[in-house]
Computed example of a mutant assay.
Amino acid sequence: MMKGLLILFLLACSLPASAAQMFKCSLTHNLENGDADPTVEILSRNAAVLDTGTTFTFSTDGKNKITSPELQPVKSEDGETVLAAKQNNLLFVKLKNSYVLRNQKEGYVFGECVPDK
């Protein structure tokens, strides 16, 4: 019994811990206008995103925090694997250096993300 507990303890200690990391990103807002070209507005060049590995947390207005649901690996159209999740009518996507929140007509992109030191 004790030997089994010791093995479980050693295995648990050897598992990598997923540390959260803060990023500073450029935040843009995209709005579909029916038949017209979409509008794109830069909201911030210093927006914060907290990445925990399987979720990300951000604010589009600087006040209210939004956390993505648990992200799952998905193959994109170009063959890349991205992390994505849907919640209600919202799509959350984590790419290499960017994070996306999107519904059918509007979206927010946190791009050009760099680690916040």
Results as ranks from 00 to 15, higher is better:
76 S>K: 01
42 I>N: 07
104 Q>G: 01
86 K>G: 06
78 D>A: 01
78 D>H: 01
26 S>A: 15
77 E>F: 13
55 T>P: 04
70 E>R: 15
56 F>I: 01
109 V>R: 03
50 L>E: 04
9 F>Y: 10
47 A>E: 02
7 I>L: 04
117 K>P: 15
116 D>H: 00
65 K>F: 04
27 L>V: 14
18 S>V: 03
7 I>P: 00
74 V>Q: 10
115 P>W: 07
86 K>Y: 05
24 K>E: 14
99 Y>D: 05
66 I>V: 09
19 A>D: 10
56 F>W: 09
36 A>R: 12
52 T>D: 02
97 N>I: 03
53 G>S: 04
16 P>D: 08
27 L>T: 10
58 F>M: 00
98 S>L: 02
38 P>E: 04
101 L>E: 06
82 V>E: 10
59 S>D: 00
5 L>D: 01
11 L>I: 14
12 A>H: 03
105 K>M: 15
11 L>W: 10
7 I>N: 04
27 L>A: 10
37 D>M: 14
81 T>F: 11
5 L>I: 01
71 L>I: 07
13 C>M: 09
53 G>N: 02
94 K>H: 01
86 K>Q: 12
67 T>I: 11
104 Q>N: 10
89 N>E: 14
76 S>C: 03
86 K>H: 06
99 Y>E: 08
21 Q>T: 15
43 L>A: 04
37 D>R: 12
31 L>Q: 15
9 F>N: 11
12 A>R: 09
6 L>A: 12
94 K>M: 02
18 S>H: 11
21 Q>Y: 02
11 L>H: 06
117 K>Y: 08
2 M>F: 12
39 T>D: 08
11 L>C: 14
83 L>I: 00
113 C>I: 06
34 G>M: 09
3 K>Q: 08
74 V>E: 12
60 T>D: 04
90 L>F: 11
54 T>Q: 02
25 C>D: 07
101 L>V: 12
82 V>G: 03
31 L>V: 15
38 P>H: 03
70 E>K: 15
63 K>Y: 09
15 L>Q: 12
93 V>C: 00
73 P>K: 13
21 Q>E: 15
104 Q>H: 09
85 A>M: 14
